[in-house]
Each structure stands twice: as structure tokens, then as C-alpha cells.
Amino acid sequence: MAIHPPQSRVWWKEPIAKAELVWIGVAFLWGLIMFFMMIYWHIYGQQNLSTQVGRIDPAVFEQRTNDFAEKFKVREEGDTGIPVVKPPAGGDAYMLARTYEWWPVLELEKGKSYKLHISSLDLQHGFSLQPINMNIQVHPGLEHVVTITPTEAGIYGVVCNEYCGLGHHVMTGRIYVVDSGQGG
């Protein structure tokens, strides 16, 4: 039994039954398939997280985001005073995270690609784009540049899904996606 020493002293020379060998082989092959699936997706898949990342001083990132918002601001979000910013198609967009907001609100065009720069000014935050359910971790001091291509017009929520303190659950943001040539 499993609570007694092996019955045969030289247990490592016991034969392995065929069925067990078959299962080990199948499981090993399945592991290889799953391993190469990730590499395959890097080559042929459309959804891969960018590895374009640089160290950045949070103050510098804040300044760049402010400049970006000032330059491309198209309106304000209701009476909140938060700017809605519409970057040129194919251009750079900035969104910063700080306790407890995602800033500013972005307006993007459907089918166009944008280089989204995200970083945090204070703690770690979680960029969770809903309802499409795309989730990216955000660190202070690291600027992550992700190229995204919205596929459908609509209003998208950005929820913080990395716990960042007692106001974590009020930390939200917004991205508008409009048909090309519209909005603004």
C-alpha cells in the first residue's frame, strides 16, 4: 500500500503497464500541443499583448497625457469636467491610472488602429476593458504601449481590476468607439 515501503525493493526496475505508458505519451503530446499553440498564436493570431514597454517617470507620463488631452480634446464628458479626447486615427493615445480614476476619456474610430500608452502615477492598477473583457496590468514607472483596433462601435467601460485601496471600486474610465468619420 501507499503507506508501506514499495513491495519490491528494486521498484525502479518494475515494468510499466502499456495503458499507463499510452496515457503518459498522450498527456505529454497534449502538453506539447498546448505549448506550441501559444507560439502559433504569436505568429498567426491577432490578439497578442505588446511587449513595447519603457521605464518612465510618472511625472513625465502625466505631463505627456495632459499635453495629449489638451491637443486633441473634442468635448467634455457631461458635467464631470473630464475631457473626451479623440486622437487621430493610427496615432498615439494616452490613458493614465491614478487612485481612483482612468483619465481622460477616449474616443476612437472603429476599424482604425491606435497606439494606446498606459501607465500608473501611483500604485498598481488593472486596465479592464468591458464588456469585451480585455485585461492588462498597469504598473507605476512602466509605460506600456499596446496597439489596439476597435471592431465595434459603442460605449466601453474601463474598470480597475487590481485592488488599489479603499476607493478601488469607484475607479472607472470610458472609451467611445464611433464609426469612422463620425463623432467629435
Binding site: 480614476e101 482612468w102 474598470v159 481590476n161
Partner: peptide, 26 residues
Amino acid sequence: GTLGVARRHWDITFPALDVTLPYGYS
């Protein structure tokens, strides 16, 4: 989680809160 709900989150019914930019999960 498949529907996007965040972990470690006090309230997923944002409209009930004083949230600037509310979002509604399905």
C-alpha cells in the same frame, strides 16, 4: 469572470454608487 466581473471589488452595480463614469455588467 467570463462576463468580465473584477475580483476584489466591493460593488459591481456601479450605478448605485457615486461613480463618475458608471459601467453596467450584464
